[in-house]
Design a protein around this nucleic acid. Structure first.
Lengths: 197, 197
DNA sequence: TCGCTACGATACTGTTTCGTAGCGTTTCCG
DNA sequence: CGGAAACGCTACGAAACAGTATCGTAGCGA
């Protein structure tokens, strides 16, 4: 955690950084990681190459920050919702953010780059933990309401619920959002139906 | 379909081709697609670069064949098995071939390269169709046995059953095969339990 | 054995890429 | 307003890379 509280950050730094990350993100989404070259980012962003190297030690450092800044956040469901509602809300929101055109274009690259960039693997891992924490809270709500057996593993539930969406995203033809919706409905119905009132 | 029936293929061609594809596969699994350069493949395989260009028009052509030759096959389940047994057999086998270290290393690259290499996308798509056909037969068996409702969509079943495994493979820490097994068991139990005898 | 085909070795071209360096200019901030 | 920090521009070096060309050699099959 950098202390951006004590001393305000020079706006020039923020501007340049944002421009470069945006440009790099575009290139990544359009043509994959190979297209994210230092020169291409410099040209598209309008920021000089020398400035890029003032912000990052190497091209890889830039790539890491590009990924970090693009991983979508999700919000914890409203605490007044019932278990069923909360579960639906979480799955629907995760699906929604994953279905973003930009994320659909970036996700495969993240999956691949992870393998050979430990820093990226760590970022992805931390993100999963964050999201699992949200789901864990929902599962706990289900247990408290007697709708789920005590000791239900939120990780297994996550795989059960998100796995099919993930699979659809990476295998179905792009722009086949109907497939994704169908998957979500089906999975939720089946999951909830198996624990009848 | 090439006619390798009329005239036998020169063994030298087969040898060179196999060597190059093996070397390229290794490089791909070790260090990703960027490492699969023409020079690197030539060096590791011991086959001259000029020979590589006698076999493929470009580096991309080689990459396509590398993927094609690495996509694992699965077998249709024995026709004497019950629906339950057949379903288990299919899921277990798909999981087994996907869990291969080599395939785990290659799969993310395929997911990514697909986006910008239509030929690869087609290969992957055809492979899915092949595997879905096997599952469709099993689902039909389930319908005939009255264990599944008529009109069950094998595609949704596939997403339901394979999705979680797929998700686990791409997100869980590598070498966490226990996670995969747990996923398979859990998914199968839940799926079958929801259609009681 | 003989011809044809595939192969090996090497060199070479042209391009792309990462990363560095120097120097003048703009922009922020106290 | 003035110093400091960030930036733009350009040129450059070195390596990696795709793909081509040439020529001599080895292996296959009839």
């Amino acid at each position: 955690m950098t202390d951006h509280t004590t001393r305000p950050i020079d706006p020039r730094v923020l501007r340049s950084r944002a421009k470069m990350i945006d440009a790099a993100t575009e290139l990544l989404a359009e043509s994959g990681p190979r297209a994210v070259t230092v020169d291409a980012v410099s040209e598209r962003s309008g920021v000089a190459k020398s400035t890029l190297y003032r912000h990052w030690e190497s091209r890889e450092g830039l790539l890491v920050d590009v990924m970090r800044s693009n991983i979508p956040d999700i919000q914890a469901p409203d605490s007044e919702l019932t278990f069923e509602q909360a579960l639906r809300a979480v799955v629907v929101e995760v699906t929604a953010v994953m279905t973003t055109p930009r994320w659909r274009a970036i996700l495969p690259a993240l999956m691949m780059l992870q393998q050979h960039m430990p820093e990226l693997a760590e970022i992805a891992h931390d993100d999963h933990e964050e999201k699992k924490a949200i789901l864990r809270e929902v599962v706990q709500r289900g247990i408290d309401a007697g709708r789920l057996p005590a000791g239900t593993d939120e990780e297994l539930v996550a795989r059960q619920l998100i796995g099919p969406v993930f699979f659809t995203l990476l295998t179905a033809h792009p722009a086949d959002d109907a497939a994704v919706d169908k998957t979500v409905d089906y999975v939720l119905e089946r999951f909830l139906a198996s624990y009848p009132d």
